[in-house]
Simulated assay, not measured.
Amino acid sequence: MNQTTTPARASRITSEVDFARDGKQVGFLRLPHSVHRSAYGWIPIPVACVRNGAGPTVLLMAGNHGDEYEGQIAHAKLLRQLEAKDVRGTLIFLTSANFPAADAGMRTSPIDGGNLNRSFPGDPDGGPTAQIAWYIENVLLPQCDYVLDLHSGGSSLMYVPSANCQRATDPERMRRSLELLQAFAAPVSYVTDAAQGGDQTLTAAARRQGVVHLGTELAGGGTVTLAALRAAEQGVRRVLQRVGVLADSVPADPPPPTRLLQVRGPTYFVYAAERGFFEPLVELGEEVAAGQQAGLIHSHDTPWREPAVALFQRAGVVICKRVPCRTERGDCLFHLGSTYEA
């Protein structure tokens, strides 16, 4: 377990769950929130802990973005299935981390507009999203050895069901991350050079706290697919067994093959240069070449104009594409992966 010193600044969030107590506990994190209808109220963020003696501690997190449902469902199902006897160590469940966003089915919080995965390290005296980020980074993560952060494409993107980690300069940390990718065994696994949100992401928070982070992008499109949900459920079980916190008596399927890729910078992404209607010219999983047409943006207000053409800047495999047809300049249309190089 990481032994990072508790920060001098205290969180205003309190927990109904005692993370040091053996057994299975469920309850809420209480985030104080004073509004017109409730002067001394609090936002109830669901939290649970399943603990059984000594062993690794793993934070199982989903709902970092509220419109990404696969992880929220997968973690909730596992929580209902497990008892303390099934665990060697501690599992902390934060299934709807940015609860206001999850409650509204939105990527960001309807209260303060906060994107939790762009809010770390947060602020214990800030708005709701900043307070949640502070609590995760400075209260939960210092207790943990690993964090499984389940994302998907949300409302605007669709992925080939994938797991991911960030490239590490420390060889041992990189080895452990690749080991978890192989255990999760999503159809695609990829290594990123840097998270899209830089130092404001949970990935960066985990790195600061010395915690091994594993992320996912499990389909998306504002829905749940059977394949993505099964990949999430079985992948989480395999990872927990690999790190030794889940008893072997809890069944998990053997890991299927996974394709190991990398995402190494801006040339892996395609963005809309105009606003209009997006017509994709390739599908998920296709191999593409540098300079190949990726999609067309049709002008709905001047339909006599020829559509704008979006091009792939490099060769690779299409692992993500935009779902909504209506597109604004700057929206991500695709991103690619290429064969992993150590």
Rank of each mutant, 00 (worst) to 15 (best):
P161R: 03
P280K: 11
A74Q: 06
G41E: 04
I132M: 12
V323D: 11
L311V: 08
R207P: 01
L60N: 06
P121G: 09
L284E: 01
F28Q: 13
P7D: 04
E341I: 10
S15T: 12
L284H: 07
H298N: 05
G330F: 06
S177G: 13
N2C: 08
C144I: 02
D145L: 02
G105Q: 08
Y69M: 07
I13H: 05
P7A: 06
R259M: 05
L284F: 04
N138Q: 12
R175H: 08
R208M: 03
E217H: 03
G126C: 07
Q293P: 06
R175I: 00
D125C: 11
G197W: 03
G66N: 10
A163D: 09
P142D: 02
G122K: 07
T327W: 10
V35Q: 09
R175T: 14
T4Q: 14
S34P: 04
V47W: 04
V288T: 06
I73V: 15
Y190Q: 04
V282T: 10
P256W: 12
R264H: 01
P32V: 01
A183H: 01
P121C: 08
A185R: 07
T192P: 02
K85R: 14
V139I: 05
R237H: 09
L141R: 05
D193F: 09
G153F: 14
S155T: 11
P7F: 03
V17D: 01
P307C: 02
R237A: 13
T203S: 13
T169A: 14
G127I: 09
R88C: 01
E328Y: 05
S11T: 11
L31A: 07
A97C: 15
A310T: 07
E70Q: 06
V245N: 07
A290P: 11
L180M: 15
D170T: 05
L157D: 08
Y40K: 12
P303M: 02
G210N: 11
L94F: 12
G154C: 09
